[in-house]
Nucleic acid binder design. Structure first.
Ligand SMILES: [Mn+2]
Ligand SMILES: [Mn+2]
Ligand SMILES: [Mn+2]
Ligand SMILES: [Mn+2]
Lengths: 225, 225
DNA sequence: CGAGTGATTTAGTCACGACTAACTATAAAC
DNA sequence: GTTTATAGTTAGTCGTGACTAAATCACTCG
């Protein structure tokens, strides 16, 4: 069977695939409720869509267990992810957006732009490998780099690391981080780690920053090379 | 009643409104079949949508006669038109598109971009008043300039005019015109007008161009100031 | 092992926006 | 002033993607 669906995927389908990809990527299993929560939909809506996705051979469905992307589904998800992240990067670099307000725009545009436009944007940006939040941009062939990062609270006092990636999309957090200069690419040294889920103190260009545990957990760092 | 519909209009609704605007603008009456032809839809689909548009107070429907935009409908149409034309201009000026391949992209993106993004693009372009085809870009408040133009075949031999606007969206025609340098803003002098729907000969920067009647009719000119 | 609980699926409905087939209004032709 | 062609509308259907209410599965706990 594998119904058509080949050429054009609807906005809904694309968003489902992306959410399923994210869930499996972060280790969670892509269950009906997890998908429903992520997309703010009722569970039966997801059950229905999952059936259609399975018919279209975009996912494998193990009833009552969850869902896994097929090769086709994964490729489709990565294609949208590429669009999303290039779009975000373009909006920030070329149109003066700040990293805390690009997400919603990209969430819509990722479904509307042509491959051609995305590749033109990518070229205009010098074919970047990371978006403003430090998330890797999948290549055209679906390849995506896997950067191993460590959350800031797990870095030892005295160590110097780079901020590689930010694990939140919340606009207020992103604004606070940007104000504090805590953005991907920046180098920081851990000055203090308070126990019992206490704050982390780092130095950035010689100035101190105290970062609450919650936020610190979302600062994903790489060690110096 | 005037059903919600206030905030978000669907892609279909927006395209209907734009087509209705175009038809009335060019003097044709916005009949069911005219709309159906323009959107490549079956007539009953249009009948159905017209009913919904009327319920939403976007058009006034005189059964068996046709349809007219209400104030709200006109404003909505002009908003999409602004998006479309700014998008086209941006794609050409900032992303290396040629004027013969921007239309399809803009046709989709006009429904997906936010007001904010469009205004950022407009600003990046220096708030242009015309798109690459010479079509006027409606202002934010819905105001749109009305340029009086004359089709090239109606210009007398010896007269010098500016090409102001191109009345075709056909990619092959646009490519030919661009190759010939016959684009909006260019100044040409009519050297010859052959009778019986014959071609027009013009000079452009001292070189001759012979233009078939069909195409010449789509070159809309303004006289020198 | 059976009961209970929470997750999941099924059943049935709805709005949107397309379609075809069939009917009807309008206006031109005789 | 009928007839007739054409344009427009109504009726009925379909696919998509959402919903609620009800049924069912799977696992945990006593
Ligand atoms: Mn999206
Ligand atoms: Mn991002
Ligand atoms: Mn459109
Ligand atoms: Mn145009």
């Amino acid at each position: 069977m594998t119904k058509s669906l080949a050429s054009h995927l609807s906005r809904s389908v694309e968003d489902y695939l992306k959410v399923i990809y994210h869930l499996t990527e972060t280790g969670e299993s892509a269950t009906t409720t997890a998908i429903a929560d992520a997309l703010v939909l009722a569970a039966p809506s997801v059950s229905g869509m999952v059936k259609r996705l399975a018919e279209a051979a975009l996912v494998e469905h193990l009833p009552y267990k969850g869902v896994r992307l097929t090769h086709r589904g994964r490729r489709a998800a990565l294609r949208i992810l590429r669009r999303h992240r290039i779009m975000e990067t373009y909006l920030v670099s070329c149109l003066g957006y700040t990293w805390d307000n690009v997400h919603d725009e990209a969430e819509k545009l990722e479904h509307a732009v042509s491959d051609d436009l995305i590749e033109r944007m990518s070229r205009a940006l010098g074919d970047p490998h990371f978006d403003p939040h430090g998330d890797p941009i999948p290549a055209l062939d679906g390849h995506i780099v896997d950067v191993t990062t460590t959350p800031l609270p797990a870095i030892a006092v005295g160590e110097t690391v780079n901020i590689a990636r930010v694990g939140t999309g919340a606009a207020d957090r992103l604004r606070w981080l940007a104000d504090a200069g805590l953005v991907p690419g920046v180098r920081i040294t851990v000055l203090d780690q308070q126990p019992f889920n206490g704050p982390v103190t780092v130095s950035l260009d010689g100035t101190r920053r105290v970062i609450g545990r919650d936020l610190a957990l979302q600062l994903l760092c790489t060690r110096q090379v």
